[in-house]
Design a protein around this nucleic acid. Structure first.
Length: 228
DNA sequence: CACCAGGCAAGTA
DNA sequence: TACTTGCATGGT
């Protein structure tokens, strides 16, 4: 009975998620994520994109580059108000300036301002440290870990949730941890695979699985079971 | 005009 | 624990 239960709950190898990955990978090809030239740029982008269109984040990133502020030391030297003005196009700019400052404070105090040192901390421990920083929740913490530090942890975002709900892979209201566990259970831990898979889900969400279009016309996943 | 976009924290019951 | 609200810009 225990064996049946484990398979029913979806052990590694039994789940549809690996089929999703094959199909999406075949359909879209390599995604080259996360967009960003440096590790620090990736972390900044992870905070700036909170509930915000990426096109707006790009404008803010461009402002930071222009001001020479896209480096740990330089951004740390900026006043919070100056930082807020630079990232204005990304929205919620006062809150996000505060969040960036909170992260920089943590980085300086705990790791002497070194991202390399920070990412040497074991995954789950670093995750807890990041979650304790004002402005960093589960998705942002996991984006930092996976895309910034190549730690094998899956990022759950609005697209991931919507696609899995529509394909009945998770219960209607599912917690972040619940969704993440589905991935960790069905897909062997690998930073490159988790990276690519999440990027593919975002691509699918943007092009096909729209909030306003529940039928997902032309979606590469349309052959899979879908809720009515 | 309304709606949407790669969340999060703080307040309330 | 489980909702609700404020935060804000820019594109469609």
């Amino acid at each position: 009975m225990a064996t049946w239960r484990r398979r029913d709950r979806g052990t590694r190898g039994s789940g549809a998620l690996r089929s999703f990955y094959r199909v999406l990978s075949q359909h879209f090809g390599p995604q080259h994520w996360w967009p960003g030239d440096t590790t620090f740029e990736i972390l900044v982008g992870a905070i700036l994109t909170q509930n915000t269109a990426w096109t707006n984040v790009e404008k803010a990133i461009a402002n930071l580059k222009q001001a020479g502020a896209l480096r740990v030391r330089a951004m740390g030297a900026l006043a919070e108000g100056e930082l807020a003005e630079l990232i204005r196009p990304s929205g919620y700019y006062n809150q996000k300036a505060q969040k960036l400052k909170a992260f920089l404070d943590y980085l300086q105090r705990r790791h002497g301002g070194s991202l390399r040192r920070m990412f040497r901390v074991p995954t789950q421990q670093l995750r807890q440290e990041l979650l304790a920083i004002h402005g960093i929740g589960e998705e942002t913490a996991d984006s930092i870990l996976l895309y910034g530090g190549n730690h094998p942890i899956f990022v759950v975002d609005a697209y991931t949730r919507r696609i899995l709900e529509r394909h009945q892979m998770i219960p209607a209201p599912a917690s972040y941890q619940q969704i993440q566990e589905v991935f960790h259970r069905q897909v062997a831990p690998s930073a490159p695979v988790y990276n690519e898979f999440h990027a593919l889900l975002v691509q699918t969400g943007k092009q096909h699985c729209l909030k306003s279009e529940p039928r997902c016309a032309g979606c590469p996943l349309e052959g899979f079971p879908h809720r009515v």
